[in-house]
């Protein structure tokens, strides 16, 4: 399994990363080497095991529906670059 340059470009776009050609090539190499490592797992015989989504044997870790105090507005906004009237401000999202 190997990843094409177009796939790297596509994944970069989904991650909102702007990469130049040199960076794309570099990431292609690194991602391919990661995929190669994953490929090694294919050699392990897992015939006896049933598929599972989690490594820990926990189920139904749930909490009661009881409210607790969250953050003050000023504290919630403290890490934001731009704020206005209690809102986080981000570059305009174009949507009709």
């Amino acid at each position: 399994m190997s990843i094409t340059l177009d796939e790297v470009r596509h994944v970069a776009r989904l991650a909102r990363l702007e990469l130049d050609e040199a960076e794309l090539l570099a990431f292609q190499g690194e991602l391919n080497s990661l995929l190669g490592r994953c490929q090694e797992l294919q050699s392990i015989d897992v015939g006896e095991l049933s598929p599972r989504t989690h490594a820990v044997a926990l189920t139904n870790v749930l909490a009661d529906d009881t409210p607790t105090q969250g953050l003050d507005q000023s504290l919630a906004l403290r890490g934001a670059a731009v704020t206005r009237a209690g809102l986080f401000v981000v570059p305009t999202i174009i949507e009709e």
């Binding site: 529906d65 009881t66 409210p67 607790t68 969250g70 953050l71 003050d72 507005q73 919630a76 809102l87």
Partner: peptide, 21 residues
């Protein structure tokens, strides 16, 4: 009464970013 994955209260309207954690 609370959100899906934290215990911030739910509600409609109100001051922005006051039911957050």
């Amino acid at each position: 009464k609370t959100k899906m994955f934290c215990r911030c209260p739910t509600g409609f309207g109100g001051e922005p970013n006051t039911r957050v954690c």
